[in-house]
């Protein structure tokens, strides 16, 4: 599903993608800056929240700074015909933050299920990964964990 955005929406997105002003009336300040009435700005933002163009307005934590220093992208080779069921089961685990099906790129990359697992250390990530392996059982032909060792860039979306 694609939502049609007009130029007002785009101006609002461009004015807020780096962040919301930390001022008592942030929406008013945006409205003043882009010279669009504040009731229009607030209504457009509300609509974008409802239709999912904006997932939420809030804080994006640096998980390393919060002590979640081990970040493991676990990747799994599971049968394509069962991936819907298996993906939903893995995604439902409370410690999995993102879970996607992605294409295999043979012969270099035979993993089709990705599940992001965070822990305070690698041991915690490995314990959680073992739980996923147990859940997948014989459906898992191969898996590995790719730990992140450095954030090279993190700016988020820019249009």
């Amino acid at each position: 599903m694609s939502i049609e955005l007009d130029s007002i929406d785009r101006i609002i997105i461009q004015a807020t993608q780096a962040g919301l002003p930390l001022t008592p009336r942030p929406y008013h300040d945006i409205a003043e800056k882009i010279d669009i009435p504040v009731d229009v700005v607030m209504r457009r933002i509300q609509v974008m929240l409802e239709n999912g163009v904006i997932r939420r307005i809030g804080a994006v934590p640096n998980h390393y700074a919060l002590g979640w220093s081990a970040n493991g992208m676990t990747v799994w080779d599971v049968p394509d015909e069962h991936i819907d069921t298996l993906g939903q089961q893995v995604g439902a685990l409370e410690f999995v933050s993102h879970c996607y099906q992605r294409p295999r790129i043979m012969p270099d990359w035979n993993y089709n299920l990705f599940a992001m697992v965070h822990g305070r250390d690698r041991e915690e990530v490995e314990t959680k990964t073992a739980q996923i392996a147990e859940l997948l059982g014989k459906n898992c032909k191969a898996h590995t964990i790719l730990y992140s060792t450095k954030i090279l860039k993190k700016t988020g979306l820019r249009i």
Partner: peptide
């Protein structure tokens, strides 16, 4: 929290797929 880099951002999180 932003200065200390405990937060990387504060504001709307966009889902670009929804905008085409």
């Amino acid at each position: 929290l932003l200065t200390q880099k405990v937060l990387t951002r504060f504001g709307p999180m966009f889902q670009i797929e929804r905008m085409g």
